[in-house]
Design a protein around this nucleic acid. Sequence first.
DNA 1: TTAGAATAAATTGCGTACAATTTAGCTGAT
DNA 2: ATCAGCTAAATTGTACGCAATTTATTCTAA
Lengths: 156, 156
Amino acid sequence: MTQLNQITLDSQLCFALYTANKKYNHFYQEALAPFNLTYSQYIALLSLYEQAPMTVKELGNHLNLDSGTLTPLLKRLEKQGWVTRTRSTEDERQMIIDLTKMAQQNQADLYNRVTSCQKLLGLTTDQYQALVVAVDKISDQLDLVDADHLIATVPD
Amino acid sequence: MTQLNQITLDSQLCFALYTANKKYNHFYQEALAPFNLTYSQYIALLSLYEQAPMTVKELGNHLNLDSGTLTPLLKRLEKQGWVTRTRSTEDERQMIIDLTKMAQQNQADLYNRVTSCQKLLGLTTDQYQALVVAVDKISDQLDLVDADHLIATVPD
DNA sequence: TTAGAATAAATTGCGTACAATTTAGCTGAT
DNA sequence: ATCAGCTAAATTGTACGCAATTTATTCTAA
């Protein structure tokens, strides 16, 4: 038997990301508790605070999510009063998502809460930004190695 | 209105991690396709290749997953012939998870496939390990700021 | 003009994740 | 010895995330 145990869980970048992402989810669950928002709902709102209204398609492009995820998520945000969902009159295939007045009124509170919580992380702005750059680099590498390339290149 | 738009999606570490993690999932979905394994099933097997048998509890400690996730996942792995699930005789509360002969026979193939795919990422060993360290550091920071601390420290 | 292709969103189905509860088995203090 | 409390796993319920399909609408080329 050759060296089989070189792949340990703790040495894997995928597992580090998987773990950090889950912990971040937990972190945001607490940060967002006063607003009754999930993390996914929060990033959808973040995107809409940057630009609204947007179609489901456009929002999906920003978040890398498809309608299978967004449709039920947005229905929940609508139910809780954060967004409106309106069929476009000029193209009835499209659903226009916009922020409610309540969402706009809560923007500052939401940002303040998140910012306060983030300060507890104990990272300097430089450290934080360096990490964003490093993690984005992983995403870029993974984009290069997309599914087709991988299937075509590596035999089973 | 003060500077509200300082929180952009692309500047957020959480979103970078969230995105990279999803892309990694997709990457592994292709890498693992020949074995019909999900990413979560794969890391469960990785853990068991390092140490088997294990109870569900022990496995959950390694993976940071609870029985709500592991029980159905392990039942699927059992159904596909990778693991066995046996009630412990000395403590019947515990379920002992062990690798099947098939799982052992496929270990080398699985490792080779994953290793081949990882090479396509175009990261040197040093770069890769540096990223693991960086991402683990995020997890460590998030551990420090746990739920109780956060709730106790930051007013709504 | 109109049938077929393309597109947007919704739906369906499966597999996580995880909080909360339930069930079953163990353990220790009285 | 026994019962209250603890523990392990399973179960329940909710919310993603995504592949695949369906439905409705728009576009486009003959």
